[in-house]
Design a binder for these strands. Sequence first.
DNA 1: GTAAAACTGTTGCATATGCAACAGAAAAAA
DNA 2: TTTTTTCTGTTGCATATGCAACAGTTTTAC
Lengths: 209, 209
Amino acid sequence: MQYNFNKTLFIEKLKSSCSKTHVRNFKKGETITTYIEKRNQICFVLKGEADLIRYDLNGNKTIIGHFTLGDVFGEVFYPANTNNELFVEAKKNAEILFLLYDDIQEKCKKGCQFHEELKESLSDIILEKVIELNTRIELLTKRNTRDKLLSYFDILSSNRMNKTITIPFSYTDLADYLSVDRSAMTRELSHLIEDGFIKKYGNKITLLY
Amino acid sequence: MQYNFNKTLFIEKLKSSCSKTHVRNFKKGETITTYIEKRNQICFVLKGEADLIRYDLNGNKTIIGHFTLGDVFGEVFYPANTNNELFVEAKKNAEILFLLYDDIQEKCKKGCQFHEELKESLSDIILEKVIELNTRIELLTKRNTRDKLLSYFDILSSNRMNKTITIPFSYTDLADYLSVDRSAMTRELSHLIEDGFIKKYGNKITLLY
DNA sequence: GTAAAACTGTTGCATATGCAACAGAAAAAA
DNA sequence: TTTTTTCTGTTGCATATGCAACAGTTTTAC
């Protein structure tokens, strides 16, 4: 966002000109990829939405990441020795472009005309990912549910530059994203309404402060 | 770690050959930088250790990140519209190399012999940052203090490939890093000992599972 | 060396959060 | 359409966590 770099244009170019990529479509609910074996795969969302999900031993679901148009995910972003089973699931019919980090750095070099440009853009793309993750960490380090909710609303609100926001999740999923219990979160939402911090109409929230 | 890229060598080269960088020494406790105004600064730890810290309105301290030799931090990794005041503090006498992301991408291009190599390495460096942040998110999404502690110990243990680990923090700071109350964490540590999960000798912990 | 400051382990108490269960609403599937 | 599934809001209860306070220890500063 903050760097003058046209990501959409970039992805279009990538799709049409790099021989090392491939594109696949997924239906809602399908598993796009699992992070078990360590490949250095990078994936771009061309259409639709996807969630990066972890289930722990107690069956708790955590939405580690939520990806939409232009977002990037993949095993290359995770440590090799992760003992968590993560997988990415299509939330809506989705079109995903796959390629390997190594192919960008090495193999593609000879044939692909677009290659130099890709390499230049790569650090910008990964940098954007870093910013996304730091934003998420800001959220997760908040000590209680109220602060997590307010932080989340603030982020959406300042992104859209609007005091009224639309939650891009079901409330069930939002709880999994904030890493809190759903019923406790709903309870806290009620408190926020009582205390005059927010108004709530379905999946729309208006910040009153 | 996982890419065959020599970071130490890289930093040495960077320090000696790029005219756009500068290096400064800090004493323990000194503030290295604050993330208020938005510059696209990148900083490398050449010596010592540093913490990225946030204080919330209630005075709670959170250690957002902990950096040692070779680690990278800086405003460039944060969204422009962050309303949190973050700052980086030297934990031990530290030597820090500063440069601007824009200088790598643009201005340095003409004069600096090392520039091309720097650009190639840049995406590897930022990628390493992404992996570090995803590891941190795995930790923070754990639902309770016990799981956070065990995850943290696991990460240290598998990095050092040793069942006995040395906590690189004071326990006070570890609590701030895990985003939990110190006394609650100490209590949970006692429970982990009682339940036979760990043994504890000062700042050394042995995993018994 | 001595004084001051920070760290550690512990506890009682208040409360936020998790958990289980339920019914009505909404959405998806048939 | 009808049926099935998922989502939502709520509540009672158990408990994990936060908070405040304290004393003993260790570390830093003078």
